[in-house]
């Protein structure tokens, strides 16, 4: 019941302004036992646009609700902690697990993140080996063991199927 459906990758949205870092995380996650598809947005404003269907994300089908959000703190335009706060206070997004993935272990950031109901806070290691092992644990935990209410899962799956159909249809 908590296992991903056969052949259907789970969607992870990664909010990170450093493209090289984003690529590394995507590559580490690709080696996970749980099939997944990582989508990237590059600043806080884009992240909020994605969820609240504004600007270039006005088409809901092109921005499926992810099963997991990985969120950096230091982001251009809108800070990651502000993004977290907004997502966790909105009924349509508050149940999506959010993991802060950052290089900052500052006490103040940690306290704020928990204050805003982060699900988990993880500090990125500097070397690739450790990042790989961290992303393995993280991906496996959140995509496999953690359970989401069906309402989210069903909506995600439906959106994903539709977005695939649209991509194939063009």
């Amino acid at each position: 019941m908590n296992k991903p459906l056969e052949g259907e990758p789970l969607v992870i949205l990664h909010v990170e302004d450093d493209e090289a870092q984003a690529e590394l995380v995507k590559r580490s996650l690709a080696q996970n036992r749980v099939r997944n598809r990582v989508l990237n947005v590059y600043d806080g404003e884009e992240a909020l646009d994605y969820f609240f269907h504004r600007g270039k994300y006005s088409d809901k089908l092109k921005s499926p609700k992810p099963h997991l959000i990985l969120l950096d703190i230091r982001l251009p335009k809108i800070d990651g902690l502000e993004v977290l706060k907004q997502l966790k206070t909105n009924d349509s997004t508050k149940k999506i697990p959010i993991v802060i993935l950052t290089s900052s272990a500052q006490e103040e950031d940690l306290a704020k993140a928990y204050e805003y109901h982060v699900n988990s806070y993880v500090v990125k290691p500097f070397d690739y080996e450790n990042l790989l092992s961290l992303m393995h644990d993280l991906g496996f935990y959140w995509l496999s063991w953690n359970n989401l209410p069906w309402v989210i899962r069903a909506e995600n799956d439906r959106n994903y199927e539709q977005s695939v159909k649209i991509t194939k249809g063009t």
Binding site: A105, Y121, V123, L138, Y141, W145
Partner: peptide, 21 residues
């Protein structure tokens, strides 16, 4: 396996604030 993953993830990977409010 579930219990092991749980411990691994929450004890080793997850961070929490040090200060208690």
């Amino acid at each position: 396996q579930a219990v092991k993953q749980l411990e691994l993830y929450w004890v080793l990977n997850n961070r929490t604030p040090n200060k208690r409010i």
